[in-house]
């Protein structure tokens, strides 16, 4: 890691100005749990870090109006325990509480978490830093260089949304819940404020896996908004991992439903751990909407989410596991109706 300048920005305007002045060598840092990690791994090499974690008002958690509005630098731990989130939107609270560890949730912000980069081991452990040993090709790190994960140990790689250039899984839990809840991402940058539907925020790898987010240089995530809905109450984030806690998802599902008796009126289903982006499973939603929710139908919905899956050598189990995670999540969510 090279030496760097570290400055604080007091306002979003100041952050953007500092970013522009740094001339392309800058990165924003909020909690730092991802970017500092990536710096140690030799993946990010900023010469200037602009700390946005003290920007006034950017940590606000507003739950009074028609929308839930989370400031970009609100801590994951704080959003998870905000009363309305905890009581009315279990899918959001659980996605936060099942992520990382309590220490990291006290550091990481809900805005920064949207930009967390993949846990693909070839991406992370192959940049030749002193903390790791491997040197692996990666199209995310160096566009066009190749992908060592192809033909490699792919047990934890994605089965949905992959390309010939990249099979890296989108790592987040919170973005999956937000995808199910049709959140909007507010970013602020040199060109002012943009509001981006979460469906448009994450980019499929295609031929350009280094382009992961619909965000421009110098732009800062200032807020996340979620339109209030009664479906929030009838929701869950179900996550299966290689151990009971403190691990990324092998497969996860964010599910929110509105029930009409035993019948499903609306369903929102998104997947984590199995796809290259937070993955909205519309096909699964179509299976259950308008029908009585039975375990059999829930599993059918789960399978419908994976009809396009393209498993590799060691990760085919994610297709069946993911289907069952959806099935279980649907039942859990539906049982939460008052």
């Amino acid at each position: 890691m090279r030496g760097l300048n570290y400055t604080f920005a007091e306002t979003a305007d100041a952050a953007v100005t500092q970013f522009a002045e740094a001339g392309g060598s800058a990165r924003y840092i909020a909690g730092g749990t991802n970017i500092y990690d990536l710096m140690k791994l030799g993946i990010e090499r900023p010469a200037h870090l602009i700390d946005v974690s003290r920007i006034e008002g950017l940590d606000a958690i507003e739950t009074d109006g028609d929308v839930l509005r989370f400031g970009g630098r609100a801590l994951m731990a704080d959003v998870a325990r905000a009363p309305v989130v905890r009581d009315e939107y279990p899918v959001l609270a659980e996605s936060l509480l099942k992520a990382a560890s309590q220490q990291l949730r006290n550091m990481a912000t809900v805005g920064g978490n949207l930009l967390q980069r993949t846990r693909c081991m070839y991406f992370r452990n192959g940049a030749g830093s002193s903390t790791t040993v491997g040197v692996y090709l990666c199209n995310k790190r160096e566009p066009g260089s190749g992908c060592a994960a192809l033909g490699g140990l792919d047990r934890t790689q994605a089965v949905l949304g992959t390309s010939e250039a990249c099979t890296a899984v989108a790592p987040g839990d919170w973005p999956v819940a937000l995808a199910a809840m049709d959140a909007t991402i507010e970013v602020f940058g040199p060109e002012g404020t943009r509001n981006i539907p979460i469906a448009d925020f994450y980019l499929l790898p295609g031929d350009t896996p280094h382009r992961e987010f619909n965000i421009n240089p110098g732009e800062l995530v200032t807020a996340i908004t979620v339109r209030k809905t009664p479906a929030g109450r009838t929701s869950t984030y179900h996550k299966i991992r290689d151990r009971e806690s403190y691990a990324f998802a092998l497969a996860s599902a964010a599910v929110a439903v509105e029930m009409d008796g035993d019948a499903v009126r609306t369903a929102r289903i998104a997947l984590g751990g199995v796809a290259t982006t937070p993955w909205r499973a519309s096909a699964a939603e179509r299976v259950v909407v308008g029908s009585s929710l039975t375990p059999e139908l829930a599993l059918e919905a789960g399978h419908a989410a994976f009809t396009e899956a393209r498993p590799g050598q060691h990760n085919a189990f994610k297709v069946e596991l993911g289907a069952r995670v959806i099935a279980d999540a649907l039942i859990i969510a539906a049982q939460r109706r008052v």
Partner: peptide, 28 residues
Amino acid sequence: REQSEVDPRFAGYLNDDLADYVMAVNAD
């Protein structure tokens, strides 16, 4: 939980950290 995963093309341990080399935690 535990397995040191070797990619035969490189003969190194791909999961050479404590996130990817999965060891038991309290909740287990």
